[in-house]
Amino acid sequence: MSKPPIFLNLLKIQLPIAGVSSILHRISAVGIFLLLLPFSMILVLASNSEEGYSIASYLLNLNSIKILLVLLLTGLTYHYISGIRHLVMDFGYWQTLNAGKISAILTIVLSGLMSLLLISLVW
């Protein structure tokens, strides 16, 4: 049985832009997976009692939590937009090389802009 060739010099592997978009989809998925539960706990705290709401707004005013919140929101926006792109491709559109490139660039640029907007909303 022959082994498949393995080439793992990460500095020399150049992903095409569609590949970058795809791996970012997975990375943002892991980020959401790690951060969603703590922030939904804060949401439960905030919506169940008046004191809980003030504790939650105190927590959300801390800079470290704000950074985590921006990371979560950026991941969510990226995953949302990129997920729509994947769905469109599942239905059979945008499947040529050119369309894939353009939609990947559009996805990254749009979610970058959205993330700037979110940073300005959170701060």
């Binding site: 997976f33 969603l36 539960l37 939904s40 706990m41």
Partner: peptide, 16 residues
């Protein structure tokens, strides 16, 4: 870990 986390999300949903 993912099962524990999912249980947490479901509990949060019901608590909300």
């Amino acid at each position: 870990y993912s099962y524990i986390q999912v249980a947490g999300i479901l509990i949060c949903g019901f608590l909300l």
